[in-house]
Design a protein around this nucleic acid. Structure first.
Lengths: 214, 214, 214, 214
DNA sequence: CATGAATGAGGGTTCATTCAT
DNA sequence: GATGAATGAACCCTCATTCAT
């Protein structure tokens, strides 16, 4: 078994694309091989199994994601800034790992229960913890509204961000940062127009002056 | 013919539950049969195929949904009220058809291309049209912010609502109306705290005095 | 279990028709039931199994056939007259039991080996014996050519007659007797034109003056 | 790609043998696989479906057959010689494609209606046309008797030849040419003994001096 | 590294048959 | 006599996986 990590990456990217488009179960190993330009059996020189491809795709994505999240969480920002930073990091991750995110969205619910994919449940717990802490300390700090159910808010923000992977196409009109900004504006300020909204809204569009993470 | 349609409904509900939990492709017909307490082959007395079960589940849900949406859209409400009504109707639909909504979320992307499921693409177009019109006339009427990309807003609102099906459990702590109210409050006002927020937020919780639709 | 032998016969005729058209294995019990205007399960009030229908159809036909053949064979005719009588009896049987004959042609080869259908092998042996004896004594008596392989001739005559069931339609242009006459003329005299042929051929068409059998 | 086509041919021959013995519908894919010495699923590496095996078997046979028939029909022989040549070609084809012919006999009636096997109906029409023309011009030329119904004669000759596939075993006592000769003798001259028959019959057995076709 | 051919487990589906009503 | 619903065995076919070349 030689190295050739680039070929591996290539094949993995192809697989991720097909998994994302067809769903993991509906994807045959042959379809991946077709897309990659070799025969089904040949994939087994590079990977142990179809499942291990999925595994590698998902864990690769989560590793990247946590690297960034951890940097944000360790930066000691104020709650609202933390939230903004996490959302922005998420959209950047969607940009880099679109297929993996889409797969994660669709399949993680069921995979979580299998021992091999236990790390998905772990990741979810860490997500929940990070977000809840951020929101709760934001409420305590007067950054966020106090009248909302925090769990509901958590789900709202979380889902709101990740589903974007289902329609986002890298290289499209909006950069990930631009999308993050608009999403943050909606999540934080709402979509309803109010007195003085225009001023605040304009702020939301203003170029960020610092980007402490990544 | 006697109580045939009820049995059909029973089996369909069981199937929907399993499809939602495992994904359509990962679900074997035997598993559905197990859950329903009969043998795999017996399902074919009631249905033509696994696919036709899926079809019936999805189209049943969409029919119900459009019945309600159409009532709302025909009511001649102001844009913001229309949006509130649509979101509320959606959460009620999630409450009644949780499994179907979850399936729709996960599978419709891929099914859309098959002739048999062409109605999924149609439905999506009608959704888009209804929502975009509501948002655009809301912007024109001064109900909604003018600085947001309308398509982005559309996706934001749409996804935000429907993903809820992935965690919602009927009969849980919050009624669909209660969840709708909190979501609407977040979507419309945002989660950030501002001057005078408390008053408005309180309003969001106030009991609705009229429910013109459904 | 009450009598109702007419219903039985009706159903059996329907079954025979479908078996003949589709082949026994390709015929589903449900198709027979459809054609007979009842539900598949209801057939089992009348018959033990699909196979027993087939059995009854085939043995019914063979019983009839042997009744006639035996009468012919017992009549003490000269070999050539015996042959003519057997062929004529066969075409009459094709007329009365067209479907059964067609089924017999297609399926008997395979059924013969099953214990339940052992009588098919018996029948074939009796056929062979009757025909070979007729042909051999015909050769000895100077009725038939001496230069032909008798077994080959037997197969030639036998098949030549029975395959007709595959295209024969009762109530068509030609009566069974008419067809028998033409076939006999071809089998006995050949299709080639020869000196004095016209006279003999005409004879073949002449009305039979006696019909000792049937 | 190396010796792939040979394996295909091997498997196809095996399948044809089993189809011929058991009937297409009564034959399970597994049985074919058993006879070929591999597992049922492995057949699908070589063929799309059970039906496509049948298709290939039948169309392969018909292609071969028409190649020979066309050569005969294009040779410009006299009607009687044409008939002799066609019958001889048929028996040679039975020798080479015994199983396929038997399958054709048993199944073509039902298959004809399926779009995929439409070529069976075409073939039948071409057969009919070729034979009828030969017989009719033979009648006109004084080769064949004028007192016979031509359609009946056509069926007589056609069936007479092809059913032989149900009992013929390649490598048996008689060569296909020998069988053809005896059949032709019976069909043309009849089996009845007549004045001067012996001379003509002897001719029928005489070695052919020329074989212009094949 | 890749191919071609095969394996073996299972999946969707069909269908003869049963039986309470 | 017939129906509606179910059984259970088997069938065709798919697909992840293996392995000699």
């Amino acid at each position: 078994m030689r190295p050739a990590p680039e070929r591996r990456r290539e094949l993995l990217d192809t697989a991720a694309e097909v998994f994302a488009a067809q769903g993991y179960d509906a994807t045959t190993v042959r379809r991946i091989a077709d897309a990659a330009g070799l025969l089904a059996g040949s994939l087994y020189y590079h990977f142990d199994s179809k499942e291990s491809m999925l595994d590698e795709i998902l864990s690769g994505f989560l590793d990247d994601l946590w690297t960034r999240y951890d940097r944000v969480l360790a930066a000691g920002l104020r709650p609202r800034e933390t939230l903004e930073a996490l959302v922005t990091a998420s959209f950047r991750e969607i940009d880099r790992h679109r297929a993996a995110v889409a797969i994660y969205q669709k399949e993680s619910g069921r995979l979580r229960d299998q021992p091999r994919f236990g790390y998905l449940a772990d990741a979810q717990r860490r997500f929940e913890h990070a977000w809840l802490r951020t929101l709760e300390s934001g409420v305590a700090a007067g950054d966020f509204r106090t009248d909302l159910d925090v769990r509901l808010t958590y789900r709202f923000v979380r889902d709101t961000v990740w589903v974007a992977a289902s329609w986002y196409r890298p290289g499209g009109r909006h950069s990930p940062e631009e999308i993050a900004r608009q999403y943050l504006s909606m999540v934080l300020e709402g979509i309803a127009l109010r007195n003085g909204q225009r001023a605040r809204a304009h702020q939301a569009h203003a170029p960020r002056t610092h980007e402490p993470y990544e």
